[in-house]
Write a protein that binds this DNA or RNA. Sequence first.
DNA 1: CTGTTAGCGCGTTCAC
DNA 2: GTGAACGCGCTAACAG
Lengths: 335, 335
Amino acid sequence: MRSLAARLGVSAMTVSRALNDRPGVAEATRRRVLGAAAALGYRPDRRASRLRAGAPAGLVGLVVTSLADPVMSALTAGVERACAENAARVIVASSNSDPAAESGLVADLRARGVDGVVVVPAGADHAHLRAGQRGGGPLVLATSPPAGLAADCVLVDEVSGAHRACRQLFRQGHRRIGFLASTRSWAGSERLRGHILAHDEAGVPVDERLVRQPREDAHSARSAARELLSTGDDAPSALLAADFPSLVAVLRTVGARPGSRPPAIVGFGPARTDLAPFPLTMVSPDSVALGRAAAQLVFEPRAPGSTAPRQIMMASSLVGPSTRLAHAVAPPRIG
Amino acid sequence: MRSLAARLGVSAMTVSRALNDRPGVAEATRRRVLGAAAALGYRPDRRASRLRAGAPAGLVGLVVTSLADPVMSALTAGVERACAENAARVIVASSNSDPAAESGLVADLRARGVDGVVVVPAGADHAHLRAGQRGGGPLVLATSPPAGLAADCVLVDEVSGAHRACRQLFRQGHRRIGFLASTRSWAGSERLRGHILAHDEAGVPVDERLVRQPREDAHSARSAARELLSTGDDAPSALLAADFPSLVAVLRTVGARPGSRPPAIVGFGPARTDLAPFPLTMVSPDSVALGRAAAQLVFEPRAPGSTAPRQIMMASSLVGPSTRLAHAVAPPRIG
DNA sequence: CTGTTAGCGCGTTCAC
DNA sequence: GTGAACGCGCTAACAG
């Protein structure tokens, strides 16, 4: 910049004013400066300006557990869009579900001067994130309620999603509705609450034999699915496969028994009703909207310590075989 | 930092040295500084250090056409991992397939001091990216060969992928193999080249009636698929559905004709052989590896003007009904 | 309208 | 072993 100023015989200040459309520059001078800047391919270094001005960096950090996960990439897309609308960019990083890496990444992002951080936490406890709350902008949790620290968060209303799905099954005449998922995670336990809520509402007692809570891995899900579905006449006519391993296990189990009438299956997650050769309903969160909301919380921080942490609940929608899928999500592309 | 130094009665310099494990600090002083820094929750501002040192920012820009696209998120994951291994972070931005936005984003990233940029270009011509090549680190193109500028790039070997897929079909006894895809895109035309190559190799002439080149939209793909598949006795017994709209069109067309024996179908893109109720083979790029390779080109730039631009070809793999899918990609997660 | 001074938070280069 | 001065690229706050 100085060299540019020298070349034009003006001061650096004038160049700065001209480039930023500030008042106090003659029109002729401005044109000269802009022309020379374009000719030399000069681009101001925004880092230095922010530094001087003490202005926000226009940078938001995003720490996810896995970038390959479709839920995460939708969330990333939402954060990115909200940031773009605020002239900010996103730094993404993946913790690979390691809490230690997670807090390390938050610290690194802070040191890079981000205006705030959105974190999809790996574990259930978030005490390790407390250090990341001091000294920078807001820290917002996504898809998980804060535990062990006070922070804003954006959640999916899992209770309501499971509740509505289950209610629809009752309306369709089902009376024996199974539930299959780990309830060690927040989402799983919330979904079970919704399941029970719908039963209470319908006046149907919850048959405990139809509620299975395997660990969140493929193996225990598979055996739990087998048990649940082989109860003979007592077998459920419909079921909520309320986490991903459970859904896969149910689809495999049912798929391995051609001929017998499959139960109505409700899954949770990104809408991919084409997954199964038989009717499948999904309770699908709008993860793009969730990401947007999380970024909004970064841009509109609450006064520190003023009020209780905010909590935003995002509704999820039932996407069934009959539902026409709006193309909210871009179709997979071929490279 | 100054306040910290004042509080300890030392100079800012000593603090700087202590924090960076530089020699020339008494062990006692160092411990005092580190202790105080931890107590006050002080974190050095890396932006300022980089500014002073003129050092690389440890930041790589990534411009994709759409973040929701699974190919893009895999690519992003690859770039992120390679960067993490080099103590760098990734700024992601989406151009939404708008070339103007694309070059704007590259300029913005440059102004933010990134060490290099990886771009998945929206269009076929890239002349608008030339401005983004000056004055920063390398600009690397991903999934598309440079046109209108000289730049390093990382590509998927589409010719070879289509070639191998087609050869496998010949081995399986097929003689009438169709091709369906837009060839206006680089990938599409390359795939057609592979298709032809395999025919030459097998000594089977290419039947032009079996090669359809619709535009890259759902509608023209659908009608082209109908035409191709309703040729009566001349109908192909196998076909390459070589872009995403074509694959969907073929699956729908075949799915709408239960009873008749479906042709063998080869798709291109992320491996999701569960898409169809009948056997489906996919030619799948390893987009994570592609992202890694692109980031590597950023970290190991060639001397400017020294040699011709580098071009890296990534092999893609055939994933068939019989192929066991390695879980290279994390399974979809439920919230 | 334009130029000068000062300083953002840090590191290098010298002196002490 | 430690500190003072200077500068990175840029811009508020004042001069002129």
